[in-house]
């Protein structure tokens, strides 16, 4: 005879593991894209400040160009959000 309680405990454990893996995936999605945007923005930001130092009117353009790689992290955030949606409710 199979102990029904044992089976339930096993299933719960598996579900919990899956939820954990999905959460790690979501964390990676935000974390790695964050690093990627940072790498991209580093050079653009430096260049924007350099151009601004000579021509102040470039501030607006520099600011916009600097935050364009921010889209990368937004994609990551969206993915993380979608992953959270499929985490089974315990």
């Amino acid at each position: 005879m199979v102990d029904i309680n044992l089976v339930e405990a096993g299933i719960e454990q598996i579900l919990a593991n899956q939820a954990g893996l999905i959460a790690i995936g979501a964390g990676l999605a935000v974390g790695l894209t964050g690093i990627a945007s940072a790498l991209a923005e580093k050079d653009i930001g430096a260049a924007a400040v350099g151009a601004m130092a000579e021509r102040e009117e470039l501030f607006g353009k520099g600011l916009i160009l600097t935050v364009i790689p921010e889209t990368i992290v937004i994609f990551g955030f969206v993915i993380a959000f979608m992953l959270f949606g499929i985490i089974p409710v315990l």
Binding site: I44, A46, A47, A48, G50, A51, E54
Partner: peptide, 12 residues
């Protein structure tokens, strides 16, 4: 460290 100096030089 080129991004800063090249952008600045282009503005100059």
């Amino acid at each position: 460290k080129y991004p800063y100096i090249t952008a600045r030089v282009r503005a100059m």
